[in-house]
Write a protein that binds this DNA or RNA. Structure first.
Lengths: 215, 215
DNA sequence: TAGATTGTTAATCGATTAACAATC
DNA sequence: TAGATTGTTAATCGATTAACAATC
């Protein structure tokens, strides 16, 4: 697959599905699944085969007519597209329960992401270590960001501190924020922010529940 | 607003945005915002005013031509649509860091949801209490689901136990699952499952970061 | 009236699905 | 060959945006 078609602008739903494909493939027992068809992959996620092929088509396809997809090729190709091929470093700000849950999140390594710092204001937490990563005071963020070449900052602070934390991360040079606070954080336009607004998921669940109850 | 238009089938993106509107409105200082225009609301979330009005239009609208929207009316109307008006009970299975983070999640009350049980298999956790909610053994799930009329089950267990936890919750009578494990859980068709696959968010963040870096 | 607003229809745009050639 | 598969174009479908009447 050469760099063809990359100019055509990829639908954002395609990217989200690409992430779901990759997640699904990475959970597959590799002995049983050396190859997979668009039909099989689609059924595992609840999509149609033609959707899978159309998504892949945006990138020139990952297979060859007649053959099924090679799982290795799919994974490698998707990792490259999603920018997971070169390892990226991240830090977590806020070492409460959520921050600790994320610090123990095994998926990071699978995705080629390396946790290089934990930060909090609470002096009782500073000095602790989780999985060999030291908890530092937030004052040290700018230094660590530079020395460790950090590209992603995770905001796991209380809501009140979320905006100021974002400001600090951005001024330290970070361009990618993963935000777990419920507020809409304001950032310069060249900063990418991925909101994990849990209440949105919970509300849509409530809506769907209401639907099936009343039908 | 009478029950008109409810048959027209609502786009699922509209529901997601409805949740975002409600989240945004609930965070507003109520003294300053007794009323709000579609333009203001849209700009806070990064949408166009006409999108907001079209979304509202699916439900017959929340205002009156010439006037701006009354924030109270918006909140009340959206809560009703999303099924947040009558209080629902939920339980959390898995009291690790993530489970504890969720147990302390203040948003539940705001959304009219009441946490009525925490469950784990670890005997060292059973007997503890978080915010006055006791941690019980998972054997007690069926009883509590019935006695407390639980409608939502949160899966915050390790990946290995996620499917079996879902099975237990479903067989206990729960129809709504909020899943934080990375796997795609299999359920009967009448069960609603809301996946909170964190790796998907992280991967799309990585993709967008790669885009701005290379442009 | 002039300006600002919502509700609602129509036009545009984009995304999903269907169909099928090419390949094994 | 027959059956199954992917890649690719075209058709369908749905969602967003634009335009504007109605209202304050």
């Amino acid at each position: 697959m050469t760099e063809k078609k990359v100019n055509k602008k990829i639908p954002k739903m395609t990217i989200i599905r690409l992430a779901r494909y990759l997640n699904c493939l990475s959970l597959l027992p590799r002995e049983l699944y050396k190859e997979i068809s668009s039909k099989e992959l689609a059924s595992k996620i609840g999509l149609k085969p033609t959707q899978v092929r159309q998504d892949f088509h945006h990138f020139g396809g990952f297979g060859q007519a007649g053959y099924r997809y090679k799982v290795d090729d799919l994974i490698k190709g998707m990792e490259e597209i999603l920018g997971l091929d070169r390892s990226q470093n991240l830090i977590i700000v806020g070492v409460g329960h959520l921050g600790q849950a994320l610090a123990n999140y095994r998926k990071f390594e699978d995705l080629g992401l390396r946790l290089v710092g934990l930060f909090d204001t609470n002096p009782r937490l500073v000095g602790m270590a989780i999985r060999d990563v030291k908890v530092r005071d937030i004052d040290e963020i700018p230094d660590i960001v530079k020395s460790e070449n950090v590209s992603i900052g995770v905001i796991a602070t209380p809501t009140e501190s979320a905006q100021i934390t974002a400001d600090l991360l951005v001024s330290s040079g970070i361009r990618g924020l993963w935000n777990f606070s419920p507020i809409n954080i304001l950032t310069p336009p060249d900063v990418i922010i991925q909101n994990e607004h849990l209440s949105v998921g919970l509300m849509t669940l409530s809506y769907k529940l209401k639907q099936i109850m009343s039908s």
